[in-house]
Design a binder for these strands. Structure first.
Length: 270
DNA sequence: ACGTCCTCCTGTTCGC
DNA sequence: TGCGAACAGGAGGACG
């Protein structure tokens, strides 16, 4: 499940392969992978050159001559660089054919990911990107603290809310709670301003560290067709034994999401 | 305005 | 053994 660090790794890797390439054609093999009018998506982008790839939270933003499109990988989306001779794989739903003969293909087993045409000038202020909060590293305490403090929802749930902080998914939400020694059920309003400040520091550090390591490999994370290159050291997510106290890691559902924590090391309720 | 629940998807794991 | 149910989960939408 790509989160901010994994998407950032994809962005950096992809830039090495597709920048300055001109789109000759686009083949959509599963219509719903494109949000909105598929024919318009194809006709608009055809002939344009990819000049840059940006990222906001977990969204990739491909910038071309006159237009842009966003791509969200959701759970299992991945890109690969191929040539036309390679047979289309079962779950490859979209192909960008470049003028130089190479292809960029989008693969998504569960078909949850989406690509969407956006206005290159105004996309940041239009849905869905406009509702994203800041990434932890850019967050201003005075803006984030009130959003957490007014809520009685579990801090684990609030960490997953992209309008409060962008880029954190289930894996890193669990890791952040562990590092803070906080019980994931703790209501947001129980956290002091000082504690939220600490949360921003911890979240930034964990995400930065994961980016440095090239993203987390849980399933089969592909940046360019290569799998299993990176494996971040996870402290608590999907773990059985606490690395600190060696007690059993508990798994429970919070708001429908698998939540891993150590009852001994995460006793704080503030 | 906010919280809760459902939906989208397929592959894997689990229980009877 | 085999098969259906449960699970995995990010985000958008319906609903109260």
């Amino acid at each position: 499940m790509p989160e901010l660090p994994e998407v950032e790794t994809v962005r950096r890797t992809l830039k090495n392969f597709v920048l300055q390439k001109q789109i000759e054609d686009i083949y959509v093999h599963y219509d719903k992978i494109v949000e909105g009018d598929t024919a318009q998506f194809i006709e608009t982008l055809k002939g344009q050159v990819i000049h840059d790839i940006d990222r906001m939270g977990k969204y990739l933003i491909f910038k071309l001559d006159n237009d842009a499109f966003i791509s969200h990988l959701r759970m299992e989306g991945k890109y690969s660089i191929e040539t036309p001779e390679v047979p289309l794989q079962k779950h490859q739903h979209l192909t960008f054919q470049f003028h130089d003969g190479s292809q960029l293909r989008y693969h998504d087993t569960r078909k949850f990911g989406r690509l969407k045409l956006v206005n290159i000038e105004t996309y940041a202020t239009e849905l869905p990107l406009s509702k994203l909060g800041p990434e932890p590293k850019d967050a201003i305490l005075e803006e984030v603290y009130p959003k957490i403090h007014k809520s009685s929802l579990a801090i684990k749930t609030l960490l997953l809310n992209q309008s409060i902080l962008a880029g954190i998914g289930n894996i890193y939400a669990n890791e952040i709670c562990f590092t803070m020694g906080i019980n994931p059920y703790t209501p947001g309003k129980k956290l002091s301003k000082k504690r939220v400040k600490e949360l921003l520091v911890v979240a930034t550090k964990i995400l930065d560290n994961a980016i440095k390591q090239g993203g987390t490999t849980i399933h089969s994370f592909d940046a360019n067709g290569i799998t299993g290159l990176f494996q971040v050291q996870l402290q608590v997510h999907m773990q059985k034994i606490c690395p600190t106290c060696e007690q059993e890691i508990i798994k429970e559902m919070i708001n429908g999401r698998g939540t891993y924590y150590c009852k001994k090391c995460q006793r704080r309720k503030t």
